[in-house]
Design a protein around this nucleic acid. Structure first.
Lengths: 182, 182
DNA sequence: TGTACATCAGTGAACGCGCGTTCACTGATGTAC
DNA sequence: TGTACATCAGTGAACGCGCGTTCACTGATGTAC
């Protein structure tokens, strides 16, 4: 049952949206192509009309996930405000809708160069955006603040999710937020 | 061909050693039981004489990997010295032999409670050890330094591995090292 | 504008491969006498 | 201490399931007249 060109484009974006959420929630190997298609409201057979392979889907899904982060950083009022939102309990609990670096970092480091390129470009944009918002007299000082704050944010969110003890998890987030606000 | 009790204990430790390295290098799903056994110098059939399941192996391998980190932190001279070693290019390139949190963090957050318990206990020990080495007048100040430094170290190492651009990767490590030394 | 036909997005069964796991077997270990 | 037998760690073939991928088919879209 052929669908219109607009419908097909919409379907593709449904697939990407579903993949973006599912991959962050369960990891690349924890999600099947069939599950992504079902979440997008389609059947698995049609998948290869949209993407070359699962790996191709991963690359495109990462792109949209990276864009999402860049937008949220660009719309923040200050580095401190961004850190406060990033290091919130809400973000910690929202794996599927949260930061792609924190959700997939260790898996991504083993991905193809194509996928890592996407994340590298995203990270550059992220660091530039945060540098612009960071406090500091010189651009060097601003960048120093931005890079270290971003490392701390990603690390803290990750550790807070690994940890199985609520008060320790909260402590990690809170102390890191404090350190970034300084 | 039955082996002696001592040989069997040694074989078990070979399996754990191989698993610890392979999991960090390729992730849990990127390594098969047969590969672990082969790396340990055995055949795959004997695996279930040592462990209940692959997941059981993961839990035990994580334990030994966590111990490894705790030891390296305990033997460091200062927080600064530890950070300098942790944030080195050597560590970045040594995925298989490096920090388990940086290598497996995002996958671990989706693991069973049993596995997360192991990492939670390890993290507590790690933070206590680093707090003792951290500079600061009060124990509160020391802990604040230790927790934020540790988050930043893990995050920076992870990001430096994701990034596909050597100079950016180096920059992340170097700036974070600088921030911890302050 | 209306009709006839070609195109092709989506369907769902099927394929083939790899992986975790099981099992009958082997032969060295360890024990009972 | 030496011998006979039971035990059981390790072997490798086999099983079964799930997953990525393919393919013949369907029927709505879009186009040519």
């Amino acid at each position: 049952m052929r669908v219109s060109k607009e419908q097909m484009a919409e379907n593709r974006s449904f697939i990407l949206k579903a993949a973006k959420r599912l991959f962050r929630e369960r990891g690349f190997d924890g999600v099947t192509v069939a599950e992504v298609m079902q979440a997008a409201g389609l059947t698995h057979g049609g998948f290869y009309g949209h993407f070359k392979s699962k790996e191709d889907l991963i690359a495109h899904a990462l792109e949209t996930a990276v864009d999402e982060i860049a937008e949220s950083a660009a719309s923040a009022n200050s580095l401190e405000a961004y850190a406060s939102k990033y290091l919130s309990k809400g973000h910690r609990e929202n794996l599927a809708g949260g930061c792609v670096y924190a959700a997939l970092s260790s898996e991504v480091a083993r991905l193809s160069l194509e996928c890592r390129d996407v994340l590298t470009d995203g990270l550059k944009a992220q660091l530039d955006a945060l540098s612009a918002k960071a406090p500091g007299k010189t651009s060097e000082a601003k960048r120093q603040r931005a890079v270290t704050a971003w490392s701390a944010m990603v690390g803290a969110l990750l550790l807070s999710r690994v940890v199985d003890d609520k008060s320790l998890s909260d402590e990690i987030l809170e102390r890191t937020r404090l350190a970034i606000a300084r």
